[in-house]
Amino acid sequence: MKKPAPIVAELGRPETPEETAARKAESSRVYRASQNVRSLVAALIVTVAVVAVIVFAVPRGEPASVRTIDLPGIAADVESTMQSPVVVPELGTFWRVNKAELTSGSTVVWDVTLAPADEDERGYIRLAQAFDADATWAPQRLNGIAPTDTVTIDGREWDVYKPGDAGAKQNITYAIGTQAGSDYVLLYGSRSADSTAELAESLTPQIDALTEDS
C-alpha cells in the first residue's frame, strides 16, 4: 500500500509534485549561492595572503646614500693633468660639493659646484677656474654678460657681473671674477652677493698664491 504524502504545515495539505519540484529547486539555488559566497571569501583571503607574502618578502634595501665626492682627490688629479695648481674651496660645515670636474673646450676649466649642506638653505655657487684666460672668457659662462662694476674683497679686486634676465634660464643671479696669475677665477650662481663674497674671501690665500707663482 502506497504511503500517503506528508502534510506540509505551511500548506495544511500534502505538496503537489510541482510544489515539491519547486521547493527542491529553490533549495538547490540557495545552496549554490551560499557556495559562491564561500568561494568568493576564500579567494579574497588567498589574494590577501599572496599580497602580504609579496610585500614582506621583497627586499627593501637601505635608502640610497648621498654620493660623497672626493674633492681633494679630484683636485690632485686635475693638478697632475694640467701641471698647474687649482683653487680648492674649503667646505667647512656650510658647503657640500655637488660636482667637481675638468671641463674641456676652447678653454679648459676646473669646475666645482657648491651647495649649502643644510637643505633648508637654497642656491648654489660654481667656482670656475679658466686656465690661461682673462676676463674676456667670463661672458661665455654668463650668456654674454660683461662686468658692470668692481668690488674689493679681502684686499683683492673682483669684477662684478649681474646677469639679470640673461641668467634666469641658468638660475644665475650674481657673479664675480678675478685674475689669478694666468688664470681667471669666476664665482657665479644663485646665492646672494654676501654669500658669494664670503666664499671669495676664503679663497684669497690660494688666489694670491696663484698670482705670486705666475
Score class of each variant (00 low, 15 high):
50 V>W: 00
40 L>P: 08
125 I>Q: 02
42 A>W: 08
75 A>E: 02
88 V>Y: 00
24 K>Y: 12
76 A>N: 06
122 R>C: 02
84 S>G: 01
148 T>I: 03
25 A>S: 10
51 V>Q: 11
4 P>W: 03
146 A>I: 03
147 P>F: 12
87 V>E: 04
149 D>W: 06
120 D>S: 14
71 L>K: 07
81 T>M: 05
79 E>K: 13
11 L>Y: 07
57 A>T: 14
173 T>D: 07
177 G>Y: 04
172 I>T: 06
73 G>M: 14
83 Q>H: 15
80 S>A: 02
59 P>G: 13
121 E>K: 09
111 D>G: 04
56 F>D: 01
76 A>V: 10
151 V>E: 10
112 V>L: 02
31 Y>T: 14
62 E>P: 05
43 A>R: 07
18 E>L: 12
162 K>A: 12
87 V>L: 02
144 G>E: 10
67 R>N: 11
136 T>N: 13
82 M>K: 09
177 G>F: 00
103 T>L: 10
125 I>K: 03
5 A>K: 15
201 E>Q: 05
182 S>V: 08
148 T>D: 05
155 G>C: 04
111 D>N: 08
203 L>S: 06
72 P>C: 03
196 T>E: 04
109 V>T: 13
7 I>A: 15
136 T>A: 12
20 T>W: 08
87 V>F: 09
167 G>I: 05
205 P>Y: 00
165 D>W: 09
109 V>W: 03
154 D>T: 03
161 Y>R: 09
18 E>D: 12
169 K>I: 11
139 P>Q: 13
90 E>T: 13
124 Y>D: 08
88 V>P: 10
102 L>P: 06
210 L>W: 03
148 T>G: 01
43 A>E: 01
151 V>R: 02
211 T>E: 14
43 A>S: 09
98 N>Y: 01
202 S>P: 04
14 P>K: 09
197 A>T: 02
183 D>G: 05
120 D>T: 15
36 N>H: 09
182 S>H: 15
166 A>N: 11
207 I>Q: 06
30 V>N: 13
132 D>T: 14
124 Y>N: 12
24 K>N: 15
50 V>T: 10
44 L>T: 14
28 S>P: 01
18 E>F: 04
49 A>W: 11
85 P>I: 10
183 D>F: 01
147 P>H: 13
192 S>Q: 00
83 Q>L: 14
23 R>P: 11
65 S>E: 15
41 V>Y: 03
89 P>T: 07
3 K>I: 13
201 E>I: 04
78 V>D: 00
108 V>N: 09
34 S>F: 13
136 T>H: 14
58 V>P: 11
2 K>E: 12
136 T>V: 12
206 Q>D: 05
21 A>G: 00
29 R>E: 11
70 D>G: 01
38 R>V: 05
95 W>R: 03
43 A>F: 08
141 R>F: 11
1 M>Q: 06
172 I>K: 08
209 A>R: 07
20 T>N: 06
195 S>Q: 11
42 A>Q: 07
50 V>I: 15
32 R>Y: 02
